[in-house]
Design a protein around this nucleic acid. Structure first.
Lengths: 144, 144
DNA sequence: CTCAATGCAAACTATTTGCATTCGA
DNA sequence: TCGAATGCAAATAGTTTGCATTGAG
C-alpha cells in the first residue's frame, strides 16, 4: 500500500496535479479494502462519513488511479466498471460467482505461459489480458 | 449454420414464438458473416437493404439468439456488446488488437484444462469463462 | 381472432463533461 | 494569484422498455 501511494504521488507530481483532501480520502479508502469497487460502491461508502463528496470526484479519482497504474479497471459484465488496487508486478485473474457475486483471485503461471505461446503463433504481441471464470463458488454450490 | 437455424427454430417453437420476415433476415445476416457484430453494426448493415427495420428489433433478436444458445455476448471493453454466432460445442477465445480493432479467435485445450484445475482448487464450478488477450496483431506490429 | 413482433419514441443506467466555485501551491 | 479540483447538474452513449399498430398462426 505504501508503494502504491508512492507510485501515485510520483505520477501526480509528473502530471502537475495538486493534493486534495478528497483525493487522499478516496485513495486510502480504495487501497484499504480488498474489494472490487465500482464508482458507486466507493461513493456510497465514502458518503457515510463525508456527505459532501461528489460522485464525479470519486469517479475521476478512480480513473486517475488507473492511469497512474495503481488500479485496473474490471468489467464482469454486470454493467458496472469495477476498480481493483494493483500492486506492481502482481497480476491475477478472477473467479466470479454468478450466484452471490463474490470475486476470488487466482494466478496460474502455466496459463500465462500458454497465452504467450498462443500469441506467438499468431504473431500477436500481448499488452494485457483478461481471464474470468464464471460459475458457482464453493459456498453457493451447496445451496444451488 | 443449418444446425444453428434448427436449434433456433426449436427454441422459438418451445417459447411459442412466431416466425417473422425480420427475424429471419436478422438471423441470416448474423450467421452469414464471421464478424463480431454489435447491435448497431448489424442494424446499420441490414438497413442498407431494409430501411424499415428497427434498431430495437435487431437488438431483441440478438438477445433472443443468445438465450437460445446460438450466440454469445462478448464485451471487449469498448462500450459495445458484441454478438458472435456459436456452434454447439465449439468454444474459443479472442485476440483483440488494440490498434485496428481486429478480432482473431483461438482455442487452446491446455488452457481450458488448467482453468478446470484452478477452479477445482477453489471448489468452484465453472459455467462459462472469458479469456481475451489485448495487444497488437501481426499487421499492426510493423506499423507501430 | 389472438397474441407475438415490430418500429418508433421515450426511459433508463452508467459514465462523462461543462462550469461556477473552492482551494492548494 | 493561477490553475487544478470539486460538486452539482446536465449531456452522452448504449441498452431497454412502453405502446399503438401490424401480421403470423
Amino acid at each position: 500500500m505504501k508503494d502504491q501511494i508512492a507510485v501515485f504521488n510520483e505520477c501526480a507530481r509528473r502530471k502537475g496535479l495538486k493534493n486534495t483532501s478528497q483525493r487522499t480520502l478516496i485513495l486510502k479508502a480504495f487501497l484499504s479494502s480488498p474489494s472490487h469497487y465500482s464508482t458507486e460502491d466507493l461513493y456510497l461508502k465514502l458518503r457515510k462519513n463525508h456527505p459532501k463528496i461528489g460522485y464525479a470526484t470519486v469517479h475521476r479519482a478512480l480513473k486517475l488511479f488507473a492511469e497512474c497504474g495503481i488500479a485496473v479497471e474490471l468489467d464482469f459484465g454486470d454493467g458496472q466498471t469495477r476498480f481493483e488496487p494493483l500492486t506492481i508486478g502482481q497480476h491475477h485473474d478472477h473467479l466470479v460467482c454468478t450466484e452471490c457475486g463474490s470475486i476470488t483471485e487466482f494466478s496460474e503461471p502455466r496459463i500465462e505461459e500458454l497465452q504467450e505461446q498462443v500469441a506467438a503463433q499468431h504473431g500477436f504481441k500481448i499488452e494485457r489480458h483478461r481471464h474470468e471464470l464464471y460459475g458457482l463458488c464453493s459456498k453457493c454450490i451447496g445451496r444451488g
